[in-house]
Amino acid sequence: MKKTDSLQGSLDLLVLKLLSRRPRLHGYAIMSAVRDTSEEVLRVEEGSLYPALHRMEEAGWIRAEWVDKDSGRRARIYELTAAGRKQLAVEESRWRMVTSAVNRVLRMA
């Protein structure tokens, strides 16, 4: 099956969920986690991920800090905030509502 961008509208949900399970991830780790966990069905483009991370940071759902890596470079890692946990619950609820509605249509149509 052709891998298309099927993450429209759900990127925030995926990022928040990943950070709730595995705190303190940097951008590449988040992208890899989405790809690996979905068994390469879902792929996040860098051009979508970083603007989304910075938008969520501005909204207060995640916080970021710089950490020094062994190679001497710095990496920016993200973790979920309390407001982010609330937003995650909202996003999950919305997702379940949308998917159950789609499933109903698919069954009945």
């Binding site: 951008g27 970083y50 990496a75 920016r76």
Partner: peptide
């Protein structure tokens, strides 16, 4: 500088 450093860090990880 911060954004560029973060993007370069992503490339390094890749």
């Amino acid at each position: 500088h911060d954004i560029a450093e973060e993007l370069n860090s992503h490339l390094d990880e890749a």
